[in-house]
Amino acid sequence: MTTSAPLRRLPIGNTYNLRDIGDYEVADGVRTRWGRLFRSDATRFTDGADLAGLGLRTVIDLRDDAEVTALPTGLDALVPNVLRRPLDPRPLLSEALEGSPDPLGALYVALLRERGPRIAAIVGELTRPDALPALVHCAAGKDRTGVVIALVLSAIGVSDEDVAADYALTADYLTADFFAAIPAESGAADPADEALRGARPESITALLRVLDAEHGGARAYLTGHGVPDEAIDHLRTALTH
């Protein structure tokens, strides 16, 4: 588990859920480094002074065009490489919500099964030699971002327990104030469905179970969808050394 929890959430810009994924133990005892990979909700960054301290080289924005228009972040002017990589879960929502005791878990598994090449390509962007420090974000930093970050952490050897705990921290930060402050078109959650606003560890654990059962783990899932083994080795080294 994390040993430096006060450093994990970063009060930069108007974000609610900007977090550093440093200080998680990897399988062989090394730990992820602070300041290499961040996850976040979307916000407007109008002052680059605080953001400059992160030294970001890459931002991966998982939102679609309508979401970007509804809430422009301003990061294009502050970060050298801002990549739009839409990962739209909405076509999968109706099936996930239908009769499932864990609709978010069902949604994450559906993303895993239906968006494999796209998800792998997104993780592949992080394996480039000059990609880090990087920020991955969507609207709330919970669902699309949660799936991508879970795959990254699991693929480099972080335990399922810590992957689930990192995901569940979102529930502490996406408060009622967050949902009240965002534009309805931002895509952070369907305002009509409270079930989509949570972040229970069981939901991301459902994804991890399917990764193991159907693919032999996150690393095999990514390599099976086109990410080279050596690229994952590079990402592990870049995140831990």
Rank of each mutant, 00 (worst) to 15 (best):
G29P: 04
G13K: 00
V158N: 07
E25P: 03
S94E: 13
L169P: 14
A164W: 05
T43G: 15
V26E: 01
L151M: 09
E25C: 09
D47R: 02
G224K: 09
L104R: 07
P91K: 05
T69A: 15
A231E: 10
R84K: 12
L107R: 07
D41C: 04
E230Y: 08
V148F: 09
L62I: 02
E185K: 10
P228R: 05
P101R: 13
R33P: 00
V227D: 09
D50E: 13
I60R: 02
V158D: 02
D102K: 10
R128T: 09
A52R: 14
E194W: 07
E98H: 14
A181S: 15
I149M: 14
E202P: 04
G157N: 07
A168Y: 04
R44S: 15
T3S: 13
L132W: 00
D28Q: 08
L112V: 08
Y173S: 11
H215V: 07
V109M: 07
S203P: 08
A42G: 06
R84L: 08
R8E: 09
F38P: 00
S40N: 02
A184S: 13
F38E: 00
L222H: 11
T58C: 03
V158P: 04
I182T: 14
G226L: 06
T43C: 14
D47S: 08
A66C: 04
G13Q: 05
A181R: 14
L97W: 08
D212I: 12
E230L: 14
D64H: 15
F179P: 03
P103Y: 02
S4L: 01
L7G: 12
A220S: 13
T127E: 09
D61S: 03
A96L: 03
T175A: 13
R36I: 00
V59D: 01
N17F: 01
A70F: 06
G35Q: 00
L208D: 11
T145K: 08
A180D: 15
E95G: 12
A131T: 03
R39A: 00
D193Q: 13
L151Y: 08
P129Y: 12
Y16Q: 09
G141R: 01
R144D: 05
Y24V: 00
Y16P: 02
D162Q: 11
E114T: 15
A195W: 04
L208F: 07
P86M: 07
L153T: 05
A42Y: 00
A192I: 01
D65G: 10
I12S: 01
N17C: 06
I204N: 07
A66E: 14
R33T: 00
L97D: 13
R63G: 04
A199C: 14
